[in-house]
Design a binder for these strands. Structure first.
Lengths: 209, 209, 209, 209
DNA sequence: ACTAGCGGGACGACCCGTTTGT
DNA sequence: ACAAACGGGTCGTCCCGCTAGT
């Protein structure tokens, strides 16, 4: 073992992990798996199919992921990262920084994304449907995403002077979840007015300049 | 009675179907499968386990259900029937026929049911997560349930003189879906105030006598 | 036990057997099974399908046939009986009783029967392909048929003054088997000239009165 | 060599296919299956037994053959290849190139092979008995073998100055099929004189140089 | 004599996630 | 990076018994 200090050793390990995470083979596997898991479900997609479509060898796969569950976890974490990036983009957008407008933009985006025919609902909800154990790492990652989203709502609402940011944030989470389910299971078109109406009723009438 | 008349023959067929549906073996299978499917997911539960816990022979199972999918469909249909019975019970309750109170009772019930530690979310949403093909019989049954619920909301809202029953019904469906997801994935306690608040914002302030 | 003499008891048993053999349920089973076995093969057709298509209960089936093999045996025996009836019809036909003409008629009939699109080859050969054990009752029944046919040829050839009826009968059996295989596996049309030519070469030129 | 040229890429694919075909595991599977299929029939032999006797893992089997039918097809194709090799050996034999002698040698060989107690008839006929659909790949491979044999006979007969090679070839195919059936289902001993007699009658008297 | 249904256990083909040699 | 191995799992079908009812 290296005589380095724990910190250094951790840094070394991190660097190795980064190098592995950046491996093109690993990226291909994760991207292929993400697309398949989202489109068809986790249990329905086998390892063999993933490695075949990602064009990597089985050994390579197991070099990067100790087991299928780890891949599922990576898939969920990737989705989390992806959502966060989008949200941050929406926050940084129009210059001024009107938090209420940011909220509306986020939900408008979700409504539009849900209208995509390939939309299959919320990846977190779908994965959770296949992982009943709340202590499972995958479920913990999902819980992290939910906590993050709830906190994001809370911060935006506080900045928008909502009288009860905690409670309203909870309502917006309900809206988010309901919206993804609805876009997946029902006709996703013509949902914008419903969402706008809901936001108005929940946030109160728009502040008239 | 003559076996020649169509009515008699249809009645005979119905009777046969009823007898089969009422078969104790079939009931045992369906109940066992319902519990397992709900608690662990469809793909995660194998036929062998179902027949073992239901204590029926494999041949008996396949006598009643041509394939696993048919059992899943029966499971979903059973849940649908179950939900309908509950809703009807809530409609027929005391307090004359105040539709707004019925709505509140329904959502209050859902919130309480969601607090059960065994609550695993909406069975329809969870099954849909494992059945990507919207044309699949299982998905069609799920769609029927959603149409029924949306219509139920619409009728109650119209009876409660909601100014836009269609749109508000859509919002209540969002609330329902969001609520089940939330009860499953987050801390389900202390949700009653959030739901009550949401209903007030969505339905407008309670009519003060 | 009945105090009757063995002979009487045997007669009683025979009568009972006849009664059972004549049972309409049994007939339906045997006919259904014969059609299915011939068209799709023995192993490929399950008991359940036979009883379903014959519209009898499983217990009824097992009342008449101790096991599937017994049904297969009955199927083969039925085919044997059928072939014998046809041959006897051909022998008794045109009055005079020209044995050479009878031979030609038999092979002509086989050629025509083989041209039927539903023709699936010789049932005995096909069943034997699925029963490797020559001591199996089914195989014994098949052997009986072959012995009968060979003897029939021999008798007709002797009556037709063939110089070597034994050997020529063997050749005609080769022809029969080859013919059924050919009709099944190759284009069965335009086979008549080949058969006529073969018969001429085998039987020698037709006796010119 | 550049991987861009079609030829090289084709060669690579071929090499890969060859490597797979030459895999010892695959060879063991095919040889075991061939022996079992021939001796007991296709439907009567299960995958589990094949992989047990071939000492390969199930996954290995399914790595080489997508399904059992593919293995059956490989078995039939192997038999075809085998027959062709034998025939070519008989054509290239001593006695210069007398085509009539080659024909006689071929049928003599068949008669002798048929006398082997392990002889179970023609593999093609037996497999066809279990595959009723003439469009099935297995049946197509069988049809190829028959076309090849018929053509081989035709070419030899033409070279032997037969007056009607087409028709006589058809007769020899009848003889071939009849012979295999007979060797399987009847007493296969003392068949040589019958075959020799048949050939004489069919080919005409031997050319007395 | 016939039916409907249930039970039973072995076996059918095929796929699972995972590990190892090379 | 590939092939092979592994053992248990998937869903579904096999043939056959048995009971209860008519």
């Amino acid at each position: 073992m290296s005589p380095a200090t724990p910190a250094a050793s951790a840094a070394t390990a991190d660097a190795a992990a980064d190098r592995r995470a950046a491996s093109p083979a690993r990226r291909r596997v994760l991207e292929t798996a993400s697309a398949l898991f989202y489109a068809e479900g986790v249990h329905a997609v086998g390892i063999d199919r993933i490695i075949a479509e990602a064009k990597v060898a089985k050994a390579t796969f197991y070099h990067h992921f100790p087991a299928k569950d780890a891949l599922v976890d990576a898939y969920v974490a990737e989705q989390f990262r992806f959502q966060r990036e989008i949200a941050e983009a929406f926050l940084a957008e129009p210059g001024d920084g009107d938090p209420r407008a940011a909220l509306v933009r986020i939900f408008t985006y979700m409504t539009e994304a849900g209208a995509d025919p390939a939309f299959r609902g919320c990846p977190f909800v779908n994965v959770a449907a296949e992982y009943p154990d709340p202590e499972h790492p995958v479920r913990r990652t999902i819980a992290e995403h939910r906590a993050w989203f709830l906190d994001l709502m809370r911060r935006l609402l506080a900045a928008a002077d909502d009288p009860a940011p905690d409670r309203t944030a909870g309502i917006l989470l309900l809206l988010r979840d309901g919206l993804t389910v609805r876009c997946y299971l029902d006709d996703a078109s013509n949902l914008r007015p419903v969402v706008e109406d809901t936001l108005e009723r929940v946030l109160g009438a728009a502040p008239e300049s």
